[in-house]
């Protein structure tokens, strides 16, 4: 479903790469958690996956298509929730969702059904008639989440999706991730909340200084870990302290 082959990103030719030689494969129906400290390269990687940034080297394949060669096919396949959703502020919530549905070519009945379903799930029904600029940060986030699901994507990419969400919405999002995964959709998300990653993800990848320091199921990582590292948090801190080689 999603494959990154030797992906490197340099913002400046002489600078240290933001992402270096990243290789990763995520299968259909899998929930993959992408973890790393601030500035590790998570958002850069996600932006390359979504076509917002171009990799300096390497290829990114989505549903067997290269994002650079077949951008439209790839973009039709995924739904994306950015870390800070910049949504057209002068549109109302419903206008925004209709706009997204038009761009993805979603039919009237499908969009109606999905908008109603997700708006109810995220408690947005009452506010869809208001302009986006009147929304709080959390509401904008919820609107972006609903918008990313409107075309029923086969790959769901979320960058720090829990940020700004209230506990109810956060719970609804986790449930939806599980449901999407059960329906065969691949879920790829970055997070700082290690407990969420530990409970929710089939596999996790830990990125440090632009390089993949560890990848696997939480149990696999635990089995590779040194004695006393019993949680994902322990493993993460261990890697940050220079024990990364043990996990690759």
């Amino acid at each position: 479903m999603l494959e990154l082959v030797s992906v490197t990103k340099r913002y400046d030719i002489r600078s240290v790469p933001a992402v270096f030689d990243l290789n990763l494969k995520v299968d259909s129906g899998e929930i993959f958690g992408f973890i790393g400290p601030n500035g590790a390269g998570k958002t850069t990687t996600i932006k390359m996956m979504t076509g917002l940034l171009e990799p300096t080297e390497g290829n990114i394949m989505i549903c067997g298509n290269d994002i650079r060669r077949e951008p439209l096919k790839c973009k039709s396949a995924f739904g994306y929730v950015p870390d800070s959703p910049e949504i057209y502020e002068r549109l109302t919530g419903i206008e925004y969702l209709n706009f997204i549905a038009d761009v993805f070519g979603v039919g009237s009945s499908d969009r109606k059904q999905r908008i109603e379903k997700y708006a109810e799930m995220f408690e947005m029904t009452g506010v869809l008639g208001s302009q986006v600029r009147s929304y709080s940060k959390g509401m904008k986030q919820k609107l972006a989440i609903v918008g990313s699901l409107i075309h029923s994507p086969s790959l769901w990419i979320l960058d720090e999706p829990m940020m700004g969400l209230d506990p109810m919405a956060s719970h609804a999002l986790k449930e939806e991730m599980r449901e999407q995964s059960g329906n065969g959709c691949t879920v790829f998300f970055s997070t700082h909340v290690l407990e969420v990653a530990e409970k929710l993800c089939d596999r996790v990848g830990i990125i440090q200084n632009g390089m993949l320091a560890a990848v696997g199921t939480v149990d696999e990582l635990k089995s590779k870990a040194s004695a006393g590292e019993s949680s994902l948090e322990d493993i993460f801190i261990g890697i940050m302290h220079g024990e990364g080689n043990a996990y690759v």
Binding site: N98, D102, S109
Partner: peptide, 8 residues
């Protein structure tokens, strides 16, 4: 009020 226009 929400505008219920779902036309494609």
């Amino acid at each position: 009020k929400t505008d219920k226009d779902y036309r494609q």
